[in-house]
């Protein structure tokens, strides 16, 4: 399990990286933390002729909040988010921090990057799910300049995204989640890729007695080639109701009925539906409890 040969290029800055990507074309691949890519290269499932290492580019590992949004540099590691203080993250972004506990294990989180995770676009990756849930915007630079891609348009299919071969992610911008949000996953073992992951972001009217849900967002991973929002479940939340088991059960049921999940060695379609039911219910309950 030794990777095939490649030529190594170290980019000094974003412009340099883009120039290299443009020159080298499809034969090139960006490496940041490499936590997914190197494993695939060791299996020779990925065999880029050129690797463009962006790991040394300065100024891309930031966490910058302005109260309403959080800008995360592409080279920010999962672990940097995991240990970020409230002051760094800005109020209300604890959902992102808490979600990091689901990303593999510590030695993966210390190297893996936010940008790398989004670009790799695994159907169960936490960053992809969070981006879709919160309508994040992905900022990418290429020879034609910088553009911003809405998360909803970014993920195209299994490991494929809207990024062109000569583009790289520089930053992702997260709007602030609602105060009541949560991400939950299920896998057989601690740290495994989720069979199903679910994230919710609830709009709760705190002032009314009994706390009423006025709406919310629901996203799922592992039930389609890309992380998806579930409008049917969100419709249930939009109808509103008391924040409690009944509403959450109906919301989850709407999601479970709406999806058409794949079946594979990690779980049948039915099982994924059952997990969807459970995880959304539990995520809603967790969200309102915080």
């Amino acid at each position: 399990m030794k990777p095939a040969a490649f030529t190594y290029h170290r980019a000094r800055d974003v412009a340099g990286a883009i120039r290299l990507l443009a020159e080298l074309g499809d034969e090139a691949k960006i490496i940041a933390g490499g936590q997914s890519l190197v494993a695939m290269m060791n299996y020779r499932l990925a065999r880029p002729a050129h690797l463009v290492d962006i790991g040394r580019i300065g100024g891309l590992d930031h966490l910058r909040g302005d109260g309403s949004t959080l800008r995360i540099g592409a080279l920010t590691t999962h672990h940097a988010v995991e240990v970020a203080t409230d002051a760094w993250l800005g109020r209300g972004f604890t959902l992102l921090r808490d979600a990091m506990a689901w990303v593999g294990h510590l030695p993966i989180r210390t190297r893996g990057t936010v940008g790398g995770s989004l670009a790799h676009a695994d159907a169960t990756a936490e960053w992809c799910l969070l981006a879709v849930l919160l309508d994040a915007e992905i900022v990418a630079s290429g020879p034609r300049g910088t553009r911003t891609i809405a998360a909803g348009d970014f993920f195209h299919g299994f490991y494929t995204t809207a990024l062109a071969a000569d583009e790289m992610i520089t930053e992702v911008v997260f709007p602030r989640p609602a105060p009541h949000s949560a991400l939950l996953e299920f896998a057989e073992r601690r740290g495994d890729f989720a069979i199903v992951s679910a994230a919710v972001d609830l709009d709760v009217d705190e002032h009314r007695a009994g706390r009423a849900v006025r709406g919310g967002r629901v996203a799922l991973g592992g039930v389609a080639p890309v992380p998806v929002r579930v409008p049917e479940a969100e419709a249930v939340l939009a109808e509103g109701g008391q924040a409690g088991p009944d509403l959450f059960r109906r919301c989850a049921a709407a999601a479970a009925a709406a999806i058409d999940p794949p079946g594979d060695g990690n779980g049948s379609a039915d099982y994924r539906r059952a997990l969807t039911q459970t995880l959304i219910e539990d995520a809603c309950a967790k969200a309102v409890s915080r």
């Binding site: 190594y8 170290r10 490496i31 490499g34 936590q35 190197v38 494993a39 060791n42 690797l51 290492d53 790991g55 672990h79 294990h105 510590l106 030695p107 993966i108 210390t110 190297r111």
Partner: peptide, 21 residues
């Protein structure tokens, strides 16, 4: 994780990192 080493003090998999990195 048998190859876990410290990179700038943080545990990392030495099998998922090229020496050039």
């Amino acid at each position: 994780g048998a190859c876990t080493v410290l990179v700038d003090g943080a545990p990392a998999r030495a099998c998922l990192m090229f020496a050039v990195q």
